[in-house]
Every structure is written in structure tokens, then in C-alpha cells.
């Protein structure tokens, strides 16, 4: 019984101790994930259409993309990043602005994809989130 409580104590001790370096890492690590994720600049449909040479990125699941999307948009759902990123890179001209959208104003997929694009392409890349997402595009 005493041995049982001793190893439970050891396991709990290791789990508690791990919180310390994790907290330091979150605080000091230059590559620590941002919590909450920093908000990207939002852009309306009309302004987005005026962006010269912008590449539109659809962050919705593939099935929704297949059901309809912004003309010339490229599908890049967060869950299929590894398989879709090459198609995106084939179309994107370095320096060109990127407009990311998901299904509506309540979805967070566009934010996630935008965050990752900024990270992979450089913090100075112009990445915008389409305000209202696909719903806003349909009602324009």
C-alpha cells in the first residue's frame, strides 16, 4: 500500500514538475505558440477584390471547397496542410498578398491557416482574413 502511494506520488511529482519548464518555455521560447492566437488583419470582400495579384486561400474542408469556392482560390485546409501546401506554393508569387477565408465569421480555420502561412512564409507576408468568410462572399 505504501509502495503504491509512493509511485503514485512519483508520477504526480513528474507531471507537476513538467509544468515548470513548460511554463518557462511558453514564456521565453522564441518559437512558442501564441495563446490566444494573434488576430490577423481582417478585410472586407470589396477591399479584398481590389488587392492586386492577391491569392485566395480556402481554409474550409475539401468537401466544402468542392461544393463552391471563390474563383481561382486554392484549397488549404489546416488538417491537410502537408498534402496541399505544394499546390499553394505553385500558385503563390513571393510578395503577393494572401486572402484566407473559411465558412463564416464564426469559424477559426482561416485564422489558423493565416497564422501558419505567416510563420512559414515570413512575418512580413501580407496575409488577410476575409471578414465574414464564404457567407460574406455569397452575399456580396
Amino acid at each position: 500500500m505504501r509502495r503504491g502511494s509512493r509511485w503514485m506520488g512519483a508520477a504526480a511529482g513528474i507531471l507537476l514538475l513538467a509544468a515548470l519548464p513548460a511554463a518557462f518555455c511558453g514564456w521565453l521560447h522564441p518559437q512558442a505558440p501564441r495563446i490566444p492566437m494573434a488576430q490577423r488583419t481582417q478585410i472586407g470582400v470589396a477591399s479584398a477584390l481590389n488587392l492586386a495579384g492577391a491569392l485566395w486561400v480556402d481554409a474550409r474542408p475539401q468537401a466544402e471547397f468542392d461544393g463552391g469556392h471563390v474563383p481561382k482560390a486554392v484549397a488549404l485546409p489546416a488538417g491537410a496542410w502537408d498534402t496541399q501546401i505544394d499546390a499553394f506554393l505553385d500558385l503563390w508569387q513571393p510578395g503577393a498578398p494572401i486572402v484566407v477565408y473559411c465558412s463564416s465569421k464564426d469559424c477559426d480555420a482561416a485564422e489558423l491557416v493565416a497564422q501558419r502561412l505567416m510563420r512559414e512564409l515570413g512575418a512580413d507576408t501580407r496575409v488577410y482574413i476575409l471578414r465574414g468568410g464564404w457567407e460574406a462572399w455569397l452575399t456580396q
Partner: peptide
């Protein structure tokens, strides 16, 4: 850790905040 947070998030089992915390805590 940020790359690992994206890897955790890609499993679509946890919201971003949980993925980010797990990405810092699990390796430790």
C-alpha cells in the same frame, strides 16, 4: 513548440488553446 502545436491541432481533437498548451507541456 509552435510547429508541434500545429501538428497537434491537425488531429482536430482539441481547440487551438489546448493544442498550444499540450505542445508546451507534453515534451517536458
Amino acid at each position: 513548440p509552435e510547429a508541434f502545436a500545429f501538428a497537434v491541432d491537425a488531429y482536430r481533437l482539441t481547440p487551438w488553446v489546448v493544442s498550444a498548451v499540450l505542445a508546451l507541456y507534453l515534451p517536458c
